[in-house]
Design a protein around this nucleic acid. Structure first.
Length: 302
DNA sequence: TTCCAGGCAGTAG
DNA sequence: CTACTGCATGGA
């Protein structure tokens, strides 16, 4: 089961804590797209058209990625490389956090963060379609209910790999959700709007109107934000969230986010929600690291 | 009971 | 341009 060629061992970057990343993944919500165990996480992933399970764990200075192919015996070198790249994007392993930590250290209210949340990275959603759908689902409802909606969507329209009598789900393909009806989603307690947004995004992606590469080619964050906001159901919050979590862009702020507002309010010792201008001022010293500050402020809430 | 969650589009002024 | 409203549900 664990033959050597199915295991990758990669050195951890500096300022990285696998435990902090697991803490984020295991905040108490019922997520259907990964399984947390004792110091590891298991996730289903399609690579080169084939489904695999990845089991990620750590051992002192090494991150361990084990691959469990569903059905086929051999794991080719390109597959191993893809798995490594996926994990690097999932946990933002390439990032040098030293500059960010220097900014935190010299900040009056936030200098507790480097010690308190040492090694927390942006835990991403590498798949663009999944990231967009997750944003739509999460808009304006509590996260417990949002996870329930996502589970219904994934278990109904996604495929799964069984392993140790447990199903591990892949997020549904855009082509499948493109052909779902609004009424079908409404039966799962999606609002009409959420259903329309998700089906619309699924259609845009399956027809190629919307693609990761086209967005990446815009290269500038502002242009990418504007392009994303053209999508029905994608506003400023979602566009920033997607750039941050799916494109690893560093200069994003989820304006309007209630959690962010609450955290900044606490840091500034306000007894009310900060306005947009106050948020911008608060983020000002962290130019180029806004996304990380956003993530670390969310971390103060859980 | 009412309010509000990791918002957004649509409408009115 | 800004202000207001409905959306779905469940926990506080």
């Amino acid at each position: 089961m664990n033959s050597a060629n199915h295991t990758l061992r990669i050195p951890k970057p500096d300022i990285f804590s696998f435990a902090e990343c697991l803490h984020f993944l295991d905040r108490g919500y019922d997520d259907c797209l990964y399984t947390i165990g004792d110091n590891h996480v298991i996730k289903a992933l399609r690579m080169e058209g084939n489904p695999f399970l990845l089991k990620i764990s750590d051992e002192s200075e090494t991150l361990i990625i084990e691959l469990f192919p569903a059905g086929c015996k051999a794991v080719s070198r390109p597959i191993l490389k893809r798995a490594e790249n996926y994990v690097a994007r999932w946990f933002d392993l390439e990032r040098d956090l030293h500059p960010f930590y220097r900014l935190l250290n010299r900040h009056n209210q936030l200098s507790f963060m480097p010690a308190q949340y040492y090694g927390l990275r942006i835990v991403g959603i590498p798949d663009l379609f999944e990231a967009l759908c997750w944003c739509v689902i999460g808009q304006q409802i509590n996260l417990t209910f949002a996870h329930r909606l996502k589970r219904r969507l994934v278990e109904t329209y996604g495929t799964s790999i069984s392993y140790n009598s447990r199903r591990h789900y892949l997020f549904p393909d855009p082509g499948v959700l493109a052909n779902v009806t609004v009424d079908e989603l409404r039966e799962m307690q999606f609002s009409r709007r959420k259903a329309e947004y998700i089906i619309g995004i699924a259609r845009d992606i399956s027809t190629g109107t919307l693609s990761r590469s086209a967005l990446e080619n815009l290269s500038e964050t502002t242009k990418m934000l504007n392009e994303l906001k053209k999508i029905r159901g994608v506003g400023e919050w979602t566009a920033n969230y997607v750039l941050m979590k799916s494109f690893q862009q560093l200069n994003c702020i989820t304006f309007g986010d209630t959690g962010l507002q609450s955290s900044v309010s606490t840091m500034l010792e306000l007894d009310r929600k900060p306005d947009r201008n106050e948020i911008e001022t608060f983020f000002k010293p962290f130019s180029g690291w806004e996304s990380y500050l956003n993530i670390y402020l969310w971390r103060t809430l859980s």
